[in-house]
Design a protein around this nucleic acid. Structure first.
Lengths: 210, 210, 210, 210
DNA sequence: CATGAATGAGTTTTCATTCAT
DNA sequence: AATGAATGAAAACTCATTCAT
């Protein structure tokens, strides 16, 4: 394996890692190509060499971030026999996952500000997102079959409820925290927040259908 | 009545209105002072005259936006005798409210990217946010007293669940919609989404305490 | 006497006083019309009304400052019978005068940066400057007649030596003080500096002609 | 030897040279970044690249100017055996030096208008200024030892007297020249002015102590 | 692959001055 | 005589990108 090649990979990876931080921190427009390069062992020129420019770098960051997240999600395994326990565990694990991936959530918020213009250009992302829903699907089916869950709720809706809660509690913690004078990141409060989403989903799913 | 004074107000207001649009559209860094001025009957110079600069203008936009939203919220009135009906109505009205104030939600997302640096500098916002929680408080108390609601849930948590759902469904609709191939803004889907948050909250609150 | 007229005078005088401070502080280019107006009870518009603009105001400031200084100088009276005592007294009084009129000296420095462009436009200044030399002339004549002073020194040269020393010690005190690590404005140092110029002039004048 | 590197030096040096002229001519506030760039083979952008901004450029100009002057001063050599001749020569050489460095003196005046704010930020300037005093110290000591000079005069005071005269005669020549109707730069006048400072210092130092 | 220098178009900000009343 | 609002030209500064080596 040519060592040059390896350096190239390393350079690319370093650029990507730093760019992820900077874009997550300052947004697309707020991020500075100069700053990204400066935090690296390489020079600005390499951004153009490897990624074609600022936009290409941002796209690469977004893609890499989604891939990393999906990878991490695959590690999530919720094989409780009891569907109620399973869905609560899934909610909690999702919660933890979001807390741990603050930078990713910021990138997603930024991408939404841009109306998803860049994410649409990334291939294969949709496929990678399927498993998230499939796991839920399976739990819901078991729950319904056991007469534990109401039968008018679809996996995508449950996923939406869980995602919304988990994302919001990280992404909007500054404004929400300020307005209601709570520190959303403080340990005790976090534990409480974590328990709430489980209660919400279980309470909802186990209530009688409308 | 001095007409001069009124022109000043008009200039200021126009600047603020246009700036709200532009900041919501492009973010703080992405917004261009030139563009804001160009969409106005005045010149760039007036931004500095009235707001001191780009940052001052952004701050004024944020403040004005929050004030407008709180004002609108005060119009929300949910006086159902039945607590269950009341909380569902509140969730749905909140949902509608968010759908209607897309620009505001974008501003809030932008402000969270900036870690709430500017919102903290605006006085009196916290006070204005209190009513939102108070309305819920009252409904919950009635629900608990009637033995309809579980008694281990606080108003702030309900508010969080509702807000998270309503905000997410607007703010993250581009990425979520893309990944799961749904148009979050399409009428039928919107109606469904609207009914879900009611189900979630009612199901949760009427389920047995943990 | 119409009161309006009096207010006008007061406004003009206030503008002039503030402008003197600001120009002396920041130089011609560095001074801000807005700042001058803001420190006044009137508005910017009055600067244009009374002085035609920034330049006119500066010219008025310069003229007024020179007039004030010449006025003050006329109060200087050195009628010692002894020419040696007289010239020393004059040097010391001049020293004190400069120390007291820091702002004026700054204005003169500023005007010299502008190569005296504005001072040349002020009429009658030359006439007002004559007395300064005349006083010296008289002392020198008495000193020469008494055989105390060398006879190859002219009043203008003595005036130059005294002025140079007195002005420099005020005007250049920041750079000179910094480079040689002394505080030129400290009381003890000031007293010493004051005595030096007397020694210099007396020593020079009483030394044998070349 | 990389020619690229040399271009960088050339660009920097050219910028500095032109900036020196422009700042000396128009003062800090009066100088225009655009004008400096225009007189150069590079663009305005390079000022920010190399000096960070207008202020950084001004600071660099000031530092460079002082260094150049001190360098030139080191060339001044006054090794007359006779202390009287030596001190007169020093005064005259200093006079010539000031006449030749008009731009530097203007910069110093400008810096004093700014109360020495920038000079204080330049390291090592104090050290570089020491030799000026040391040369005088040595001459004075020899003069006192030979019984030629009064023994109550310190080197710093002599330096002040000489500097004040030489600087004033250049820096304030416009106002002084106008008020007393003399052309301070005319050759005959210059020669006379030059002889005066020698007379002053020698007369002073050789006069009896107070 | 790598790098420091350079660039031009754009972006924010400032300022003396004038207008309408 | 006075005032707040408004202006346009100019000034400082920034940024993504490219060049020469």
């Amino acid at each position: 394996m040519p060592e040059v090649r390896r350096d190239a990979e390393r350079t690319r990876a370093e650029l990507l890692a730093v760019a992820t931080e900077v874009f997550a921190e300052d947004g697309y427009s707020g991020a500075r190509v100069d700053e990204i390069a400066a935090r690296t062992r390489t020079t600005k020129r390499m951004i153009y060499y490897y990624f074609g420019g600022k936009e290409g770098l941002y796209r690469a960051v977004l893609e890499e971030a989604y891939r990393g997240i999906r990878e991490a999600e695959r590690g999530i395994d919720v094989d409780h026999a009891d569907p109620v326990q399973a869905v609560r565990a899934l909610a909690e694990v999702t919660f933890d996952h979001h807390v741990q991936h603050d930078a990713f959530i910021r990138l997603v918020a930024i991408e939404n500000i841009h109306r998803g213009d860049f994410i649409r250009q990334i291939d294969g992302l949709r496929e990678a997102s399927k498993p998230a829903k499939d796991v839920l699907d399976e739990i819901l089916q078991r729950g319904r079959a056991a007469g534990l869950f109401r039968d008018d709720v679809e996996a995508i809706d449950v996923h939406l409820v869980i995602s919304a809660y988990c994302v919001f509690q990280v992404a909007n913690r500054y404004t929400f925290g300020h307005l209601f004078d709570v520190d959303m990141a403080e340990a005790g409060r976090r534990a409480h927040l974590r328990s709430v989403i489980g209660d919400v989903v279980v309470g909802w799913l186990t209530s009688p259908a409308a």
